[in-house]
């Protein structure tokens, strides 16, 4: 096996462990970015074609339109059980950063952290895609999800390098990196008290360039925003339109991105450098993570 095979097989092993441990309590976050899409791809492999738990997208309503079109297309093509959650009251009240009402941090907290919390515990509004008609319907179930798979990587950003593969979030969702239980070999913490929030991170040991090599090898269809489509720019990391900038780069394929990352001009540049929300305050992401943001 190649190193990429080893990474893939370990991630599949973790996905299967998560499903064995949490069954109907489990869901997976999908942001349509390259990492979570690669993970959806691996989940289809792990479960032999049909992912047996729902995927969740937290829609801030500010996502770049291409991402939403891509989401709906792939969900149908891959037969995904897709749930979309949204902080509708904050959006209705225009309490957002793009509306000029609140800071970036407050906006992310409302549209991401709180929306995620309420989508998982079932108290917030949720929609489901009807796979046959392709129409969105309100999902009236109160079903809660305590275990969530997220496609974070340790090399993405500081606070993530301290994560575990299976990470309990205590009684609430609060995360204390210094007090995590040990995790040995491929034996993970799964015996939590009922009601404990758990995050599962099958991509933790992947690096950015490895994800791209995988995308290239597997020919995973990604949203076109990642590639230069003629104007010499592309997105390196995808988020909300008002807070994400494209970078200057002429890469048009996953293979070109791999070489750009390894030897080209992106070699020493941080991946999330196009994300404004990280700069606002250096502790932002760790702060958001402690409160439950991915």
């Amino acid at each position: 096996m190649t190193f990429l095979d080893r990474l893939e097989n370990r991630s599949i092993h973790i996905l299967r462990e998560a499903y064995a441990a949490f069954r109907g309590d489990l869901a997976m976050l999908w942001s349509m970015g390259k990492d979570s899409t690669a993970l959806v791809w691996m989940a289809r492999k792990a479960f032999l074609g049909r992912i047996p738990f729902p995927l969740i997208h937290i829609d801030t309503s500010f996502k770049i339109p291409d991402m939403i079109a891509y989401r709906d297309r792939m969900a149908r093509e891959w037969g995904l059980d897709l749930i979309v959650g949204q902080n509708e009251s904050a959006l209705a009240g225009r309490r957002t950063f793009p509306d000029g009402a609140v800071s970036r941090l407050a906006c992310c907290r409302l549209l991401k952290t709180e929306a995620l919390r309420d989508t998982l515990n079932g108290s917030g509004p949720r929609k489901k895609l009807d796979p046959r008609s392709g129409a969105w319907k309100r999902w009236r179930s109160r079903r809660a999800f305590h275990a969530v798979i997220a496609a974070i990587r340790a090399d993405e950003e500081g606070s993530r390098s301290k994560e575990r593969y299976f990470s309990p979030r205590g009684g609430g969702r609060y995360w204390d990196p210094a007090k995590q239980p040990p995790e040995f070999w491929n034996l993970y913490n799964v015996d939590f008290k009922p009601g404990t929030q758990v995050r599962v991170h099958p991509l933790l040991e992947w690096r950015e360039a490895e994800v791209w090599e995988y995308v290239a090898r597997e020919r995973i269809p990604l949203v076109g925003l990642y590639y230069d489509r003629g104007d010499g720019t592309r997105y390196r990391s995808l988020g909300c339109g008002p807070c994400t900038l494209p970078i200057e780069s002429g890469s048009r394929t996953p293979a070109e991105i791999v070489s750009e990352l390894k030897t080209g001009r992106l070699k020493d540049v941080a991946e999330r450098s196009g994300r404004a929300q990280d700069d606002e305050d250096r502790g932002t992401l760790e702060g958001l993570r402690r409160e439950g943001y991915m």
Binding site: D155, S159, K162, P177, A178, E286
Partner: peptide, 24 residues
């Protein structure tokens, strides 16, 4: 610090390029 926001209570991961392969 760059990699871990000043809190180094966990194992720090550092990448190293060897002659034959990469290391964590």
């Amino acid at each position: 610090q760059e990699q871990a926001d000043n809190m180094t209570l966990d194992v720090a991961r550092v990448f190293l390029k060897g002659a034959r392969r990469d290391y964590l």
